[in-house]
Design a protein around this nucleic acid. Structure first.
Length: 603
DNA sequence: GTTAGGG
DNA sequence: CCCTAAC
């Protein structure tokens, strides 16, 4: 029974995270998957997230776990968590020999890695069970940690063996055999991870023994893991194997996270790359595309915390912010030459990511899962990638982290390029539209905002108001390059990110914005918020038409009450008057319209 | 996806 | 600003 549930869950998770299964595999490196699932169940049963509608429980659980784990690794002692959670039981499950043998980098396995799972997911058997309401077994720690002796040594050995074996068996499949030599612990880790990736999700028809857990490398503690990751990055640079994390930053928390994500991403890339060479398995890397993620940026996090707070509470805050971000799930976007590639089925070659061709504009972005579609209109990775690609660079690799401090001072380099505040003066015309071409308005106000002085006397926001919200919501944008272009350090821009799952930051409307809103409503009426948005706030990504509607609502209210009762940045009476006027006018229009239609119906 | 309105 | 119902 449990196996079934596990399978279902696994399939579900896989389905949810698509091909980035690795992320989980890696993040849970030291844990038994059984543990993960058990915990998921636990959380589900506890209904912790049950109130979160629209989000699949399983999904939430998975991400919760992910976030939680990340957090625990950071907050808890070196060995505690990982060690205690090592789940030897996992190993007990049978391993499909085929899976064992297949090399993750082998096109076949890469290629097929998805199918089996899909099969599993499509399996009426699994789903029917799920639908039938099969309940997860009682949460017994039965077959996990408690029972099985946690023999790290054994596990370690097993792991090594797997690695070695894998290398031996698949030397030809290794992209860089040397890089994965027996002496490279890091490489081993990589390999084993891949192994898991390729093998775990595999489900062969009729193979009841399919399991996700075995062969999981066990990290003795977070520190080791961390170290290895770093080492790995260095090595990667050497071998052109993947990500390089060039910077060590302040919080280990962040660094850890960054490394992990970075690592995972590069992994995904690798996987895709290897899949691309399906046709000629014999050739080492002829048709492979090697991609290297130069750096990975942690999304911007907004943290407000009193100066008197303890460092511990700060850590916690950061953790929470990250958890919130991860909570909604991740989605990886790929953009070639600034153009987002939406067709996941397209091959790399078809997409223009092929060997021998220098790819200068390959970007990866991590974004909240649901966001990907939202901005179809004016969107595109363009904002995320292009615009800023020339603005910032390597240099700011540090930025994101630097900006995290609970200070009230906004990150400096982060957003300058688009910090303009609404400027009425800018539109000489009658329309106070805030749409300026280059200033997108979208970002949070910056202290240095050049446009700050216009009609609105005061800055429209306080320094605390870092913008975290950005429609693009892309958490990270990375410039990738072909290995060949290694020497060239691509620019990477920092785009603010919207902490997923977190309430949007409050951004009071500036007088200029109010002006623009009033003007637009005067023109369009009170029932066409989308038009109002497009007309006057098209470039203000953080203002949705709902926001505008809400603002109008409050404006009407504000205008209706005594000035003494008003709060916040005072809105010129003149504007308030216009608000009431427009409100009355359009209400009247609407009434007239309604009468007309009624009349029509009667006749 | 938009609107409208309550929270 | 969020959430939802309703369209």
């Amino acid at each position: 029974m449990f196996a079934l549930v596990q399978k279902v869950l696994l399939c579900r998770i896989w389905e949810l995270i698509g091909g980035y299964w690795v992320i989980f595999q890696n993040l849970f490196g030291g844990f038994g998957f059984n543990d993960l699932l058990l915990n998921c169940h636990h959380q589900c049963l506890n209904g912790k997230r049950s109130s979160r509608k629209k989000i699949e429980l399983n999904e939430m659980c998975a991400f919760d776990m992910l976030a939680t784990l990340a957090g625990k690794l950071l907050t808890e002692g070196e060995n505690s968590l990982l060690l205690s959670n090592t789940n030897p039981t996992a190993v007990k499950e049978t391993v499909n020999p085929e899976v064992m043998k297949s090399h993750p980098l082998d096109q076949d396995s890469c290629n097929e890695s998805e199918t089996p799972l899909k099969e599993a997911m499509d399996s009426p058997d699994l789903y029917s069970q799920m639908e039938l309401g099969v309940k997860p077994p009682p949460l017994v720690s039965s077959d996990s940690s408690t029972e099985m002796p946690s023999d790290r040594e054994n596990i370690k050995i097993a792991w090594t063996e797997v690695v070695d074996r894998e290398c031996e068996d698949n030397s030809s499949a290794c992209t860089h055999p040397k890089a994965f030599g027996p002496h490279s612990k890091v490489s081993k880790k990589v390999l084993s991870t891949k192994h898991r990736k390729a093998g775990s999700p595999r489900v062969h028809k009729g193979d009841k023994n399919y399991s996700v857990c075995e062969m999981k490398p066990t990290f003795r503690n977070s520190s080791l893991f961390y170290t290895r990751q770093r080492t790995q990055f260095k090595r990667k640079k050497q071998f052109g194997q993947g990500s390089i994390f060039t910077r060590e930053v302040t919080g280990e928390i962040l660094l850890w996270e960054v490394n992990v994500v970075c690592f995972l991403i590069s992994f995904s890339v690798k996987r895709e790359a290897s899949a691309a060479k399906i046709q000629k398995p014999m050739h080492e890397s002829k048709d492979k595309v090697k991609l290297c993620i130069k750096s990975f940026q942690i999304p911007e996090l907004l943290i407000e915390i009193p100066e008197t707070a303890t460092v511990g509470s700060l850590k916690k805050k950061v953790l929470e912010a990250m958890a919130a971000m991860l909570g909604d799930g991740l989605h990886v976007g790929v953009a070639v030459h600034g153009k987002k590639v939406k067709d996941d089925t397209a091959t790399l070659v078809q997409t223009g990511i092929n060997h021998g061709k220098k790819i200068e504009n390959l970007d990866f972005s991590i974004e909240p899962k649901f966001v990907s579609e939202s901005k179809k209109t004016n969107n595109s990775s363009q904002n995320v990638v292009q615009e800023d690609s020339h603005v910032t660079d390597l240099g700011d690799l540090t930025e994101p982290l630097a900006s995290i401090p609970p200070t009230t001072s906004p990150p400096e380099n982060q957003v300058s390029y688009q910090e303009l505040t609404p400027n009425l003066v800018q539109s000489p015309v009658q329309s106070p539209s805030l749409n300026c071409h280059e200033s997108d308005y979208d970002s949070a106000p910056s202290p240095n905002s050049p446009a700050e002085n216009m009609s609105s006397p005061e800055k429209n926001s306080n320094p605390k108001d870092l913008d975290t919200g950005d429609e693009s919501k892309a958490m990270v944008v990375h410039r990738m390059e072909m290995e060949e272009a290694f020497a060239v350090v691509p620019a990477r821009k920092t785009k603010r990110v919207e902490p997923v799952g977190q309430r949007r930051i409050r951004r009071p409307f500036s007088v200029a914005e109010v002006e623009a809103l009033v003007h637009a409503v005067e023109k369009l009426g009170t029932g066409r918020w989308r038009d109002v948005k497009i007309r006057a706030f098209d470039n203000a990504k953080h203002r949705t038409y709902v926001d505008l509607k809400d603002k109008w609502k409050t404006l009407v209210h504000t205008a209706s009450i005594a000035p003494q009762q008003r709060r916040g940045e005072p809105v010129p009476q003149e504007l308030l008057d216009r608000v009431l006027q427009a409100q009355a006018y359009w209400a009247h229009q609407q009434a007239k319209l309604q009468l007309k239609s009624e009349a029509c119906l009667l006749t």
